[in-house]
Nucleic acid binder design. Sequence first.
DNA 1: TGTACATCAGTGAACGCGCGTTCACTGATGTAC
DNA 2: TGTACATCAGTGAACGCGCGTTCACTGATGTAC
Lengths: 189, 189
Amino acid sequence: MKKSKVEAAETRRRILKAARQEFCRNGIQATGLSELMAAAGLTHGGFYKHFRSKDQVVAEALASGLCAFVNETEASPVPPGKKGLAAIVESYLSIEHRDDPAHGCPLAALGGELVHTDGSIRESASRGFTELVDHIAKQFPRTKPEVAKARALFILSAMVGALTMARMVTDPALSAAILDQAKKSLVAS
Amino acid sequence: MKKSKVEAAETRRRILKAARQEFCRNGIQATGLSELMAAAGLTHGGFYKHFRSKDQVVAEALASGLCAFVNETEASPVPPGKKGLAAIVESYLSIEHRDDPAHGCPLAALGGELVHTDGSIRESASRGFTELVDHIAKQFPRTKPEVAKARALFILSAMVGALTMARMVTDPALSAAILDQAKKSLVAS
DNA sequence: TGTACATCAGTGAACGCGCGTTCACTGATGTAC
DNA sequence: TGTACATCAGTGAACGCGCGTTCACTGATGTAC
């Protein structure tokens, strides 16, 4: 049953992709390794041929997931007639993003759980936060870098909170209102 | 070993208090019932004399914890020369609150986990969010109620996000900057 | 190019552990007379 | 008020289950000659 090196590397990527999605959808602790491997189309026993522990796959999936999210955000085209900031904010606080945590921002999906971790998992999270902040800060090219970064700090924090609360609340109208108000307030600034 | 009714009721309150603190400190899933009962000064077996399941204690601890937090926020004196909003925001985004999740806002401590729950737990969380929003909205007495509520929606979401990110990030300077920027931005509005 | 052998990705059963939950038991409390 | 008995908060051992992890095994791949 041995697979070629190319296939093995491909499998590893598939596990990481599935891990990011399952973790973001259900939470880290709530996702078992069997579930994760099944989502990648494998049985659980093979997991340790690719990773040393659950902690390692969490750290790697978080790092690559955050990287992918940042890249998508950077690569997404700015609609004509809109500022970059408005495009970022409206995409981040969209109904689609709210309803699809698996393919969305890992910080919003996992932020609460990441607070209780440490080591390389926590480092990955922290680095991802900084990268997203830097990307948002680029939307203020005419502003002094430190001011732009300070603004970006607030914008990202506020977006994470609004998305989380919009996902938590049970009333759909309230959920939509949270997203709308955050969009308005953040784009206006 | 039977205790009087008064003592039993007191024990129940003690369990709920310990539950709120342990859940907020370590997370809901990460807190075992043995750990919880030990924090209340009891052994784990007695748990089911007070609650039907872990879910029930989570729902009740969340409801009473949120209620207690709202009451504390409402009762805390406004420092002379400050507006009510500024007092709320500065207290919520203080270093003390960041470093003491056990006695702080359950929404910030548990928001990420609450997204994955349902039933009465989710309802409690949602109700607590609305109560906090209403209290913040009261700080805009001269504004039309719906506008005040809309502002409060954003302020609370942003505070939850900023507190969570400040707790997640590994760099202390960055953590403090997140809190500071959020304070400035929210009080200025 | 063909052959023999070592490698190792993937399988599925098994392990130990901690969790939520149950249970028999204890003994002070509350109640009935 | 005193006595006999039922109640039930709290204890600590035990249960079943699912988790992360380990392991013997399989068989296609890669390598050595």
